[in-house]
Write a protein that binds this DNA or RNA. Structure first.
Lengths: 232, 232
DNA sequence: TCATGCTGTTAATCTAATGTTAACCCGATT
DNA sequence: AATCGGGTTAACATTAGATTAACAGCATGA
């Protein structure tokens, strides 16, 4: 995953600082927390970061001042400002320096994380150049669920919509049991005898399609459901 | 130069729409204003834009819905949403779609322009790599979508506008599935039985036009859409 | 071990989607 | 008004995909 991004967080309030740090760490980011602008700048010089999140109001050196210094060193690193109020002057000043985003406290953590994610994604254009289509690696196969294609070496098979939907579910649950009932409701929107039988037909097809790699198996758990397994 | 950026503005309120349009025009941007999501989508299909500014609340098709359709055609174009309130759910939804910014009405015009400028500046680097020429290479054909011409060796065929629009969409999605619904909404502005049938007629025509190069195929994905493929 | 309900598999069947051609419609042009 | 270009609608043919059927193994618990 591209989640190993390194983030420098500069926030003087200990409580808020730790909360934000945790939020980000849970998402898999590497986070370094510093408590004022001066320390923040020193830390920034120590390592290469992908993103800086700066509190505006801080002792020693405020967020804008820090941001200007950071910009002198790195003109392109994404910056997010945190501010207590939504003062327009603050916002404009931040944008002038080149903020990529601007978040007012208190903030919604889900929104905050989405913004961080969006900004990191934007700055990682080379890595994301694959157009973010959902491609699953299944053994030696690549399954593109958006384009309904299943590739094995040089061969590419066009799957149907339903085949794709089912395979996608299986991929998302690799090594976990997927209950028949779940598949039925997700794909057909209801669960009945014939839906079940139809599902079995699809499972047979998918097994056939995936047959070239013997490490792959769609295992039946009697009376419960199926499990996609890939041995290594 | 940077200021010739083309902006698509979709805003149903006439007054606000004109105000924003003027603001942007004064800055030297080329701005096209449309009044609802449906018209916005069709206009988006007509030209290449550098930025879209979308009102969230609109008749016919709201800003989010429009944004999702736009994203399917162009995964990277910057999007700015305008919203009356700062509803958190709205913000989160917007970010999920991939908003680059989010502006609540009423807004400060200076801030607004700075944001627009910042976003355009950011996306400019990527543009350099993007070929701005409207000529697509399709196998042994050259398709000039601006001039509606399709060349094969020495022969040049004049396409109609609709033929061009559809072929352009297909070209932009080479090797990817293009949903019928998207084509219908992009080209016709609505999706109905007869639009679908008309589309099939066009597909037949395009297949005929492209028939000289056997490596080219417009593949149908049953119940989903079409995919332009060029084997190598 | 038997009985019974599940599952695997293949093939027949049904239906909606698509392919194709031609007739039709309608606005623009002569 | 006649023609033309372009698109839509109609009509019919064809096909693809999903469902249903049929039958053959299996698994599991009594």
């Amino acid at each position: 995953m591209s989640n190993s991004a390194k983030i420098l967080l500069v926030e003087d309030d200990d409580n808020l600082g730790f909360v934000i740090q945790d939020l980000l760490k849970v998402e898999g980011y590497k986070v370094h927390l510093r408590k004022d602008g001066k320390e923040g700048l020193m830390q920034f010089n120590q390592e290469d970061y992908d993103l800086c999140i700066l509190d505006v109001m801080m002792p020693k050196k405020d967020g804008f001042s820090l941001a200007r210094d950071i910009r002198k060193i790195n003109a392109h690193i994404p910056l997010i400002f945190l501010t207590a109020k939504s003062m327009t002057e603050d916002r404009v000043e931040g944008l002038r320096i080149g903020a990529d985003d601007y978040i007012t406290k208190p903030f919604d953590s889900e929104e905050f994380l989405l913004r961080v994610k969006a900004i990191l994604k934007r700055s990682q254009k080379e890595e994301e150049s694959t157009d973010s289509s959902a491609v699953y690696e299944v053994g030696a196969y690549q399954f593109d669920s958006d384009n309904f294609t299943l590739k094995y070496q040089s061969e590419e098979r066009q799957l149907t919509k339903k085949e794709s939907e089912i395979l996608k579910l299986l991929c998302q649950h690799t090594d976990k049991v997927l209950e028949r009932e779940i598949i039925a409701n997700m794909v057909w929107g209801d669960d009945s005898y014939f839906v079940g039988r139809s599902m079995d037909v699809f499972i047979t097809k998918l097994r056939k399609y995936l047959g070239s790699d013997p490490r792959i198996s769609i295992v039946n758990i009697h009376g419960v459901g199926f499990k996609l397994q890939v041995e290594d």
